[in-house]
Design a protein around this nucleic acid. Structure first.
Lengths: 147, 147
DNA sequence: TTGATATTGATAATGAGTTTCATTCGCTGT
DNA sequence: ACAGCGAATGAAACTCATTATCAATATCAA
């Protein structure tokens, strides 16, 4: 379950004021539009959607705002090696990994506690302090296997 | 343990002739230089090294050849989300994952059979056919923790 | 309302990687 | 050795994602 728009708006406002930054109409619009997306979007895709609502919105503003949302813990960056970064809502509740279809791009989020724990074990074994991790499985989904 | 240079040269020659492509002095030099590298290099870094040996070598040739080496199963592409692809020798023996220090870039290769098996289980559960996967753990290495 | 300063949008710039194309090279048949 | 053909090369132009610059504008605290 995602945060609702109100939640994220408050979170973002709070983050901005902590950093002595300002809430603006553009930032509100970008946040609202981002939260509505069903799929993981690139900054470019989000820009295309936003242009329909506000044709004056700038390219750079979208990129800048997505950076801010990431810092604020509202969005999370995903890198599937496509050459551009995708964003997903960071619900902060459950971390999860991704299973991506290399044909159609369908994207399943999963969480496997056992894998998570084993990862921690590896990190500890080498004396590292875990900061982050990314696990992406690439495969062919059942639909694409048929065609 | 890596393939030695002789091995990879034969492998590459064979791959090229299968594809009706040709072994050239540039390709030989790039392969040899790539195999000498101790760390995972970007195409750009390799180009810098190569220029010292052969200042006439082209930018594009290095990129093209790394693509070929990847197709030939001699190199493998790594994406740590840095904005550029790194290459490691593909020994084809053991797949492994990476533990990267976010401070100094130190890079440990590890393999955990349990994690591998659990990944397969996840993929199967969703009816996918596994094509590839990437698991990167990001942390702070013991040295960097002290400073 | 005003002033300090953060923000914006347009545009230029960057950096990785790819494409284009004329020239050169490698190989195969003579 | 030689010719001919297609593959390979290097230079330079190009693409695509993202970032930096900067003058004009918007926000907010006083």
């Amino acid at each position: 379950m995602n945060h609702n728009t109100k939640d994220t708006h408050n979170l973002f406002s709070q983050y901005l004021s902590e950093q002595n930054l300002r809430m603006t109409t553009q930032r509100e619009l970008i946040l609202k539009t981002f939260c509505k997306q069903k799929k993981h979007v690139t900054a470019e895709q989000l820009y295309e959607v936003l242009k329909k609502v506000d044709p004056t919105i700038g390219h750079a503003t979208v990129y800048r705002t997505m950076k801010l949302l990431t810092e604020a813990g509202i969005a999370r960056e995903l890198n599937f090696g496509e050459g551009s970064v995708r964003y997903e809502p960071d619900t902060s509740k459950e971390h999860h990994d991704h299973l991506v279809c290399v044909k159609c791009g369908e994207n399943i989020e999963f969480l496997d506690e056992e894998i998570e724990n084993l990862q921690k074990r590896v990190v500890t074994k080498y004396g590292y302090e875990l900061v982050d991790h990314s696990l992406n499985l690439y495969g062919i989904c059942p639909k694409c296997q048929k065609s």
